[in-house]
Amino acid sequence: MNGVIQSSKAKIAILALAVLLLAVCMALSVVFGYTDTSWKTAVAAFTDFNGSNQHLIIRNARLPRALIGAAVGISLALAGVLLQAVTRNPIASTDIFGLNAGAGFFIVMAVSFFQISSLQQFTWIAFLGATVSALAVYILGSAGRSGLTPIKMTLAGAVIAAMFASLTQGMLVANQKALEEVLFWLAGSIQGRKLEFLYPVLPYLLIAWIGSLLMFRQLNTFLLGEDVAKSLGQRTLLFKVLAGVLIVLLAGGSVAVAGPISFIGIVVPHFARYLVGNDHRWVIPFSAVFGGILLITADIGARYIVLPEEVPVGVMTALIGTPFFIHIARKGSFK
C-alpha cells in the first residue's frame, strides 16, 4: 500500500513539520489552562523565576504535564504500530487487547493490598500486569483449530480487559478509601503528574522507542506473511518475542505514568500508514510524533471542555477514537 505522500524528500519535510508541530503543541500545553498565563510569563518562569503562583504552576504542573503527554503519546502510538504489525490485525491496540487494563489492575492491587506507593515499584508492577495480559490474550487467541485469527484475538482481548476491569472495580468497592485516590488515575490522565513519575519509566520507554525504530526492516519482512518471512531467513519467533517485550515496555510504562489511555494506539498508526504507506521505516517515526501531538492536543481540549472541571484525557481520546475505530471496523473486509 502506498501512502498519500510519495517522495522521500516530501516525507522528510513533513516529518520535520510534524516535529515542529509537536513542539508547538507542547508550548501551547504549557501556556494554556485554567490559570491564566501569557507566553511572556511562561518564558520568564524559566529565565527569570520569581516564585509567583503562575511561575510555580508553569514549572511544576504544566511543563511536566506536557513532557509526560508527549512521552505517553509516543509510546502508545508505537505500541499500536508494533501490535498491529505482529498480529496483522488492523484493530489491534494495547487497550482493546486488555494490556492497559491488566497493568491497571496490578497497580490497584498493589496499592490496596500491599500498600505499595514507590514509583519504581509501580513501573515493574505495570510491566508485570501488561505481560500477564499479553500472554493471556495470545494464548487464549491461539487456542482452537483455526489458530490465531484477528477476530479471536480481539475477543480474547475484550474478555481479558473485561475481567481485569471487573476485578479492579471490585477491589475498589471493598476498599473505598483507595477509590478516590485512583479513580482519576484509572480514567487515564496526565494531570497532576510530577516529573518524578516519568523518571523511573523513561529509560525503558527510551529503549523501546529506539528498539522500535531499529526494527523497521524486520517489521516490513514480517508483514509479507509468517511463511514468507521464514523463508527469507527471518527468525520469526525471536522477532515476535522481541516485539512483545517492546510492546509490554511501551504499554506498561505508559500505564504506570498516566493510567489506561485508549484509542491512541489504534488511530495514530492508521493515520501514519494513510500518509506514508506500509513502509515501517516511515510509519514508526510518523506514528511516534503524531501520537505525541494527538495526546497533547486531547489534553489541552480536556482542560476547556467543561470548565472549570477537567475531563480525564483518556475520556477525550476514547471519544475522539471511537468514530475512527468504527470507520476502520466498517471498512475492513471481515468474513
Binding site: D95, L155, A158, A165, F263, P312, L319, A329, G332
Partner: peptide
C-alpha cells in the same frame, strides 16, 4: 468489532 469499540466509548463516558 463495533460492539467492542462502542463498549470502550460507553465505559469512557461512564468514567
Amino acid at each position: 468489532l463495533i460492539g467492542v469499540g462502542l463498549m470502550t466509548a460507553a465505559q469512557a463516558l461512564t468514567t
